[in-house]
Simulated assay, not measured.
Amino acid sequence: MNNNEKFIAEKISDFRTLNEAGRSGGVVFFGSTYFSRMNINELANNDEMGGKIYDRSMQGLKLADSFRLLESAVYELNPSRIFVNFGEEECQAENFNADEFLDKYKWLLLSLRRKCRNSRIYIVSVVSPEKNAAAVNSGLEFLAGETGCGFINVTKEAFENMGFEKVFNALKPFVRIFPVSFAQAMQMA
């Protein structure tokens, strides 16, 4: 077993342990480096989101390896909403093939749709300065429409000062479980 396989096996075990305390119907963030560095739970604690939020992201996770984590990271939680963010690592590769990447992404979305029938699925744009990212994001936006998912482009917010907070603020309307109060709506405006 190589180091990557060992690390993924450890993450699966960690997620299963965390899921024992989890509740069905929450919101799951499933992605790679950007989501794992975002501190989603801490940002969510600053606002009343109306439900449980689970961050099942992993530093350096590639889309091809994500399929091995689906059961423990997503399916066991039976979420009402799923936010997916992959592509940073892939866009950095010299031999990156956007078509192959988008095909794998489509397969991931169809797998999620099949096992999480009552979940809303949102694709969050690839946050990367790499030249491939813009083309991939266009493909992801098309893919979202094709698979019945939402697409949230957070590229602009991600590269501004306080990027993680701005990105989370852009995601909040989609994350929130219950309708916002008037005061919360005024804060979002």
Rank of each mutant, 00 (worst) to 15 (best):
G26N: 01
G26W: 01
G26K: 00
G26P: 02
V27Q: 12
V27A: 11
V27P: 05
V27T: 13
V28Q: 02
V28A: 03
V28H: 02
V28L: 00
F29R: 03
F29N: 00
F29S: 05
F30D: 09
F30M: 13
F30L: 13
F30W: 12
F30P: 11
F30Y: 15
F30H: 11
G31W: 01
G31I: 07
S32Q: 04
S32M: 03
S32Y: 05
S32F: 07
S32G: 11
T33A: 08
T33G: 12
Y34C: 03
Y34K: 00
Y34V: 10
Y34I: 11
Y34W: 02
Y34G: 00
F35V: 07
F35Y: 01
S36P: 09
S36V: 07
S36C: 11
R37W: 13
R37T: 13
R37D: 14
R37E: 15
R37N: 14
R37P: 04
M38L: 14
M38K: 08
M38H: 09
M38V: 13
M38I: 07
M38E: 08
N39H: 11
I40M: 06
I40R: 01
I40L: 09
I40Q: 03
N41T: 15
N41A: 12
N41I: 14
N41K: 15
E42R: 15
E42A: 15
E42M: 13
E42D: 15
L43R: 06
A44D: 01
A44C: 02
A44W: 04
A44K: 01
A44E: 04
A44H: 04
N45D: 15
N45S: 14
N45K: 12
N45P: 01
N45M: 14
N45T: 10
N46I: 10
N46Q: 15
N46L: 10
N46D: 14
N46A: 14
N46F: 09
D47I: 11
D47W: 12
E48G: 05
E48F: 02
E48I: 08
M49C: 10
M49K: 08
M49G: 04
G50T: 14
G51W: 05
G51M: 11
G51F: 07
G51S: 13
G51R: 05
K52V: 03
K52S: 01
K52R: 01
K52N: 02
K52I: 04
I53W: 05
I53H: 00
I53A: 03
I53N: 00
I53L: 07
Y54K: 05
Y54W: 07
Y54S: 09
Y54T: 02
Y54M: 06
Y54A: 03
Y54R: 01
D55T: 12
D55E: 15
D55I: 12
D55V: 09
D55F: 13
R56V: 07
R56E: 11
R56P: 09
R56Y: 06
S57P: 11
S57R: 06
S57N: 11
M58D: 08
M58R: 11
M58F: 13
Q59C: 09
Q59M: 10
Q59S: 13
G60T: 05
G60S: 08
L61C: 14
L61A: 09
L61R: 03
